[in-house]
Structure formats: C-alpha cells, structure tokens
Write a protein that binds this DNA or RNA. Structure first.
Lengths: 342, 342
DNA sequence: AGCGTCGCAGAAAACCTTTTCGGTTTTGTT
DNA sequence: AACAAAACCGAAAAGGTTTTCTGCGACGCT
C-alpha cells in the first residue's frame, strides 16, 4: 500500500523558462502574457505558445510580493459546526471566487485565544482583508482598530461602531412573519421561541409584536421563551393549548421549535394549516421539508449576507471603508404549514 | 454611514526596519529571530526587542517565495452545502492549523469546470498540496497524476488506485450496526435505507447482511431501498408493519429515514425501544437528539477522516506518498432508541 | 611574534514577477 | 538620403526573507 516513490513532481515552469523557449527576454515574456502593448503581435504569439507548451502558470506568490497585495482574504469563523456559518461562508466564497481572490479558512471554535492566533497568522500571510463570521447575532468584541487591513463582520456585528458589520434584519424578520400570518387571516397568534439570552430571539419577538400592534392586535398570551429545541416546542405547545385552545397560528422562534409544535398539534388533533398555521425561522431545509406539512419559514438570506460582506470587504480594500451596522432583509418562504383561513 | 477615510493602514514593519532599529544587518536580524546560532546573545536580545517594538511579523509570502514551499494547502470541496463536507473540513482545518499550515477553501459546487478552475488557481498560488472532499462515498474522477503537488481524496475516493483516498468504512459500519442490534437480543431485523444508487447504501447493507449471516440469521424481508428522506422512512415502515408485524428492530440507512420510521412506529403504537429498536446512520445531532426517544446512530467519524487526510497530505508533502484507498472505522453512538430486549 | 581557530557580523545571491527606462530597430516623411 | 517618430525589446530594480560565504577581530597555542 505504501510506496515511497511519488510522481516526478517536476518544478512548475517559470517565466524565464518560457522566455528562453520563446527566445526573448523575461521582460518581454511578461509583457506578452499580460497583454501589455509594447510587444509585436508575432512575438507575443511565440511567447504564448511557449507558455502553453510548458503549461506555465504565473507564480502568484511572487506577484503578491511585488504588488504588495496578495489577492487573498481571511475568513475567520467562530464556529464552523453551527449551521449559520456555512451559508455565509458559501456566499463569501462565491463572491470572492469570481474575483480571483482566494480565501483562507480559519475556525476559532469560539476561543478568543485561537482567534487571536489565527489573526496573527493571517496577517503574516499578508491577506488583503478579513471577514469575521459569528455564530449568533449578538455583538462581539472588535478585533481592534489598529489592524493593517480592513475587516468586515458578518452575522455577529462588532461592538465597535467604527467597524463595518453586515447582519440580517431580525426585527424585520419578525415583522414579515407576522404580516404573512395576518395576510392568511390569522388573528389569534401565539409565539413560542428560544433562548431569551439570544439577541435574535429578542429582536424577532420585537418585530413580531410591532407588526401585531400596527394591526391593532396583540399576541395570544405572552411570548414563550425557552430553548432552541423540538422538546421545548412540544412542551410549550402543550401548555399553550391548555390555556388558549382557540389559537389559530403559532409563530415559532426556529424551525426546530416549529417541528415540536407541529408534532404536538397533530397528536392533539389540531389540523395544520386549516385550524392552526405554523411558521418557523431559519428555513433549515432538512426540517422544513420533512415536516408534515412542509414548514413555512423565514429565511435569513445568509448567503446574501456572505456575499454582501465579501463585496464590502472588496470595496474597503479598494479604499472606500464604510462603518456601522448594515442590515439585510429576510424573506418568507411559504410552504404547506400556512394557508389562508378558509 | 459611509466614510472615506479608513484607519492609517501603515505598512507592516519589515526585517530591514528591525535591523535598522537594532543597529545590525538584515542577515543578522534574520538569524537572531530564527534562533540560528551565529549571533551573540546580547545582539540577539537587541534584535528581539526591536522586533517586539515594531510588532514585526515575518512576511510569509516572501518566505514562501524563497523556500519554494508556501505552507498552504487547498481544500477543494465539491459541495459545501451537504452536511458531510463540514466535519471533514473541520478535522482537516484542525490538523493543519496546529501545524502552521493555512488552508485555502474552494467550493466547486459539484461542477467539474469550476473544480478545474480552482485547481489551476490553487496551483498558481503554489499550494503545497490538495485535499479533495467529495459529497458522497462513490468514487470520483482523479485530478490526474501529472499534478505538481500531492493530492489526498477524502470521503469520495479517487477512481485511480494510484491516488491516496481516505474514506469511512461503510461496510464495517453496517456490520457494527447489526452487531449492536444483535447484542440487544434482536433477531427479527428489518432494513430500510436510501437511494440504491449511492455506494454508501449498498455497502452499509452489505455489511449488515454479512453480520447477520455470521450470526446465522437473515433480514426480515428484503432491504428496502428508496430515498434519503423522512417521508420514505414513514412509507416504508407502514408497508413493513403490514407485512411483518413481528419485527423487533429496524436498521435505517440514515437518521432522516430513522425519524420517519420512529414517527410511524409511535403512531401505530409500537413502543421504541421496548418492542422495536431503531438505528440510524450519520449521527446527525439535530435529528438524533430531537427524536423520541433519542436515536442510536452510527457515526462515520468524519472529523477523523479529515484529520487523517490532512495528516496523510502532510507526510506526502514531506516525500512519503502513499496510495490506494484507506478506510477508517465508524462507531455506534448508543442512545435511547435501542436497548436490550427485556 | 606568528599562526590557526573560533565566534560573530555583513554582503550578496536567490526566489519569481512586474515595471520603468534606456537603447535599438523599423517606419514614415520630406 | 536624412531625419523624426514610433515601435519594439532587454537590462535592471524592486518586493522581503533566508542562506551561504567572506571578512574581521579576538583568542589560544607554539
């Protein structure tokens, strides 16, 4: 199984190899390949063919050293495991990939020491900028103002207003969720949500209550905070039905909670969506599409957040640094668990 | 909100800055900081203090250019969205992070063209090696033997046996699953699994059948292939109970299927685990811990796969290239859905 | 005193590319 | 044919670091 001899691993061709083969100087070869104008068409052709023959790829390391910009950025996540980082990361990778920028991935695993270590390593590699991705929307400590490269915070905003942060609009998310339920003709809406220590749950509730107030309505009972789990969804629903059997919609703080809610509703014989509409947050595919019926949910557009952060970093690298917290809208994805009251 | 003036963005200190401040030559400064021996202790101290004062970080780009090794690797995933890539990626990132190696993340999104493009870009950046992470365990085309750097395939093995691939032991996974059920005293075991077009489902079944045969038993009915969804789990369970109401265990091809199975079992009044034990595969936390009771599942140790791939790449870069497909064992994580038959 | 040795510091080359600038050839014009 | 202008090519520097090699002073030994 183990064999000592790998493939030949010949060194990649360099520009001077190309120049030698084409019979020109290094300078001319460079100009020919980069489309600079001071090269005769016929010479350029010869160089291009030589480069082709040697399958020459310019050494980006040397180029970076010379230019002072490496065309790389650091993506610093605090928690890869959590499912929120991934779409953001995908969006950022997508936005950069198109622009010929390469992304260093670092996972600090929620540890400030490790984060600091990664920042130093990335700066040593002369990244052109950093994106810091948090695992929740609560503000987090800034990396500091003295960094030699621009930084954009995504999902978790920086505590320092001088930094630029891109976050989903959690208040707006709560608002559009309720507006959708109202549009379905629901008026007796309950709210079961997660850990009150999360800013996300607070803001979503706030938006939901505001939208209800705008419509001259109030929640059925108080918002029920708990934990982000199906178990809590089940327990809270049992209590809710005991106290308010006439509820016609439940707005849940997450898709997990919503699944628990729907399970208990079904077990107790309440039909969804005919009698009770159910909505979740996060639009987590594996949960929304597997539930019965499929779950209407609010999508935070996290890929969009990632793309926007990448774009903002791009312009910051170009010199136009913004600051403050910028929010991006969320969207309702309608599935079978909500429908107009017939 | 937008402000044109960013922070000062002073250029990072260079080695010659340090040398000047310490009153020595660049060469001496380099030697002092790198612990080479040809420097007087007192001089070394002076250089170190100067570096400290300027918060000097050696430019890894320049270092990489000179050394011919950049201390970077490319991590090429075919599908970041899929949940299998992430743990592998975490394991690899973890293994490399400790070794001062930085990871370029590229997501090809299942597109061969994009993959090729990323490979070229990574080679242009002179990565020292590549890890290719697939989204399923079916063999995939090799990147080719002519690459200038070593490559390790993780999860999805390369079709070329000259390449090195690290994959979970799916056959063994099926085997240990059945062995666990047998240890629980179950003898009438059914098998509901996913898409037969996936090698994973075939191999898990194969292992399961082999373990049963070793015990002188056979499956209850044939393996039931379908799709990787809760819906299929529910449908298949309904059929299964109609045909074989005396089943005492169901081995499911994934946690999603298992959840569907358990839902129908509960709805039909079969108690889990007292009457019927249920097992899944993948050990997907959000599903296993939310189900009632919590689901016993086979974990593929994907972080381990990632770490092993990183380690193998490391040794390959050092010159000891292995080849072939190496499998890593899976493990049973026991939760409430399986228990000894009383 | 002369010689070899040792310890320490510095000059310079190397890594690969881009760009500037000077030099040479060609073209066009009279 | 002579000259100006344009077109083309190459030498060299720059970017930051490591390493090798040379040089220099001090020290020990005969």
């Amino acid at each position: 199984m183990a064999q000592a001899t790998g493939p030949s691993r010949s060194q990649p061709a360099t520009l001077s190899d190309v120049a030698r083969l084409a019979g020109v100087s290094i300078a001319t070869a460079s100009k020919a390949l980069n489309g600079r104008s001071q090269v005769r068409a016929e010479t350029r052709q010869r160089v291009i063919e030589a480069a082709e023959r040697l399958s020459f790829r310019p050494n980006q390391v040397a180029r970076g050293l010379l230019a002072g910009r490496t065309g790389t950025v650091g993506l610093l996540t605090s928690d890869l495991e959590g499912r929120f980082s991934i779409p953001i990361l995908m969006g950022a990778e997508d936005a950069f990939g198109a622009g010929e920028v390469a992304v260093f991935l670092c996972d600090a695993r929620g540890d400030a020491i490790r984060e600091q270590h990664h920042v130093r390593a990335l700066l040593g590699r002369r990244v052109d900028g950093l994106i810091v991705v948090g695992s929740r929307t609560d503000p987090r400590p800034s990396l500091g103002r003295e960094l030699p490269v621009p930084v954009v915070y995504a999902y978790a905003p920086s505590e320092d207003p001088a930094d630029l942060s891109i976050v989903p609009d959690s208040v707006g998310a709560g608002r559009i969720a309720v507006e959708h339920l109202l549009a379905c003709g629901r008026t007796r809406i309950a709210h079961i949500t997660g850990d009150p220590g999360y800013l996300a749950s607070q803001e979503r509730s706030e938006g939901a209550l505001a939208a209800l107030a705008d419509a001259g309505l109030a929640l059925v009972g108080e918002p029920r905070f708990g934990v982000w789990s199906e178990g809590w969804g089940r327990a809270a629903t049992a209590m809710l039905l005991d106290q308010h059997p006439d509820v016609d919609a439940v707005l849940c703080g997450s898709d997990q909670i919503a699944r628990g809610v729907m399970d208990v509703l079904r077990e107790r014989g309440h039909r969804v969506p005919e009698e009770v509409a159910v909505m979740g947050f996060d639009n987590w595919q594996v949960l929304t599409s597997a539930s019965r019926p499929p779950l209407t949910s609010v999508d935070m557009n996290l890929e969009q957040v990632g793309r926007a952060a990448a774009h903002a970093l791009f312009t910051a690298i170009a010199g136009a640094q913004r600051s403050g917290v910028e929010t991006l809208p969320c969207r309702v994805v309608i599935r079978g668990s909500t429908a107009p009251l017939s």
